[in-house]
Computed example of a mutant assay.
Amino acid sequence: MKNSLPYKIITQVICVVLLVILVFPLYLMLEKSLAVSGFGNYAKVFEYFNLIPNVITSIIVVGGTLIVVSIVVSMAAYAFSKLEFPHKQAVYYLILTGMMIPTSALIFPLYQIVRGLHLNNTGWSLVFPYATASACFNLMVLTNYYNALPDELIDAAKIDGANKWTTFIQIMLPIAKPGLVFVLIQTFLSAWNELQMAIIFINDTSKQPLSVVPLRFAQTTSSSGFTINNLFAACIICLLPIAVFYIFASRQLMAGLTAGAVKG
């Protein structure tokens, strides 16, 4: 049935319809951003706002989150997959239950911790909350990836005299690179686009990450001089970094999704 002509036509039509639904809002945003004044709408955005501090905050937040996730999650996933310690399965599934807790329920206790550490109103106030929010899913993905790797690799390393740390750093981690890259890309996308905690933890608008800036644009639109076309241009500017990143990272993202499925 899957090779029949009607099936192929129906699936292609469905794909085209879904593509139009996804792309049309982006096309509308781009078309409106160039209406009336053309690229002058983009120039006016930079006349109204200095976005450099917001970009710096986003880089600090995303970069710090990626560093924490790459270190903590990669080691934790390897431990749960290949090492033996008491109550390993119970601890693993207990951590995974964190995926059932909505992020909004964690905002108040996380804010209390951030304020107690005097990190509020800084980009660093979002690093550990973002890393924590994505830890459960990332741990599950990377643990399953390590599970697909043969234990004979570890046995061969032991025969060669490698200890557990050397085995992890020099053998297992390089092999698990596609899975780790997938985890880091997912973390990058979620950290760059997160809005709720960014608004609550950082009150100073000049220090907020770029994901919050469109709200300032929308508020400015109600005042004189900043039109709806300028608003769409501002949204395109905020969308551009993540779009460029996704274009270059899409191949690695698909490799991370498929590599673990064909191992073992």
Score class of each variant (00 low, 15 high):
residue 82 K to L: 12
residue 102 P to W: 04
residue 194 E to I: 08
residue 48 Y to F: 07
residue 77 A to N: 04
residue 190 S to T: 06
residue 263 K to N: 14
residue 231 L to A: 04
residue 19 L to Q: 05
residue 166 T to F: 00
residue 245 F to S: 07
residue 198 A to V: 02
residue 93 Y to S: 05
residue 184 L to R: 09
residue 145 Y to F: 13
residue 13 V to C: 02
residue 130 Y to S: 06
residue 115 R to E: 09
residue 161 G to M: 08
residue 71 I to C: 03
residue 139 L to K: 07
residue 144 N to G: 04
residue 249 A to D: 04
residue 57 T to Y: 02
residue 230 N to Q: 12
residue 154 I to T: 08
residue 109 P to E: 11
residue 163 N to Y: 04
residue 176 A to L: 06
residue 207 K to L: 15
residue 241 P to D: 06
residue 66 L to H: 03
residue 259 A to Q: 14
residue 258 T to K: 11
residue 220 T to D: 02
residue 90 A to K: 14
residue 95 I to A: 13
residue 241 P to G: 02
residue 231 L to K: 03
residue 217 F to M: 14
residue 199 I to R: 07
residue 236 I to L: 04
residue 92 Y to L: 14
residue 245 F to D: 08
residue 147 N to K: 15
residue 80 F to N: 09
residue 60 I to M: 13
residue 201 F to R: 09
residue 81 S to R: 10
residue 183 V to T: 06
residue 104 S to M: 14
residue 86 P to Y: 02
residue 215 L to R: 09
residue 163 N to G: 15
residue 240 L to V: 11
residue 200 I to V: 15
residue 186 Q to G: 10
residue 159 I to G: 04
residue 236 I to H: 00
residue 107 I to S: 02
residue 83 L to K: 14
residue 53 P to T: 05
residue 8 K to Y: 05
residue 192 W to K: 06
residue 99 M to W: 06
residue 5 L to R: 14
residue 144 N to E: 05
residue 17 V to H: 01
residue 222 S to Y: 10
residue 82 K to R: 15
residue 245 F to E: 09
residue 78 Y to M: 13
residue 102 P to A: 08
residue 254 M to S: 12
residue 18 L to R: 02
residue 52 I to Q: 12
residue 218 A to S: 01
residue 151 D to R: 04
residue 132 T to S: 13
residue 44 K to A: 02
residue 37 S to A: 12
residue 179 G to Y: 10
residue 254 M to H: 06
residue 191 A to S: 12
residue 76 A to W: 10
residue 224 S to V: 12
residue 28 L to E: 10
residue 171 I to N: 14
residue 137 F to L: 14
residue 129 P to N: 04
residue 100 M to T: 09
residue 48 Y to G: 01
residue 257 L to H: 07
residue 203 N to G: 02
residue 224 S to L: 13
residue 73 V to F: 06
residue 255 A to Q: 13
residue 12 Q to C: 03
residue 139 L to F: 02
residue 121 N to P: 00
residue 148 A to T: 12
residue 41 N to H: 11
residue 232 F to M: 15
residue 238 C to L: 03
residue 94 L to A: 14
residue 149 L to Q: 10
residue 116 G to I: 04
residue 133 A to D: 01
residue 228 I to P: 00
residue 46 F to W: 15
residue 48 Y to R: 14
residue 209 P to M: 06
residue 249 A to H: 01
residue 203 N to H: 04
residue 203 N to E: 12
residue 46 F to Q: 15
residue 181 V to S: 07
residue 96 L to V: 00
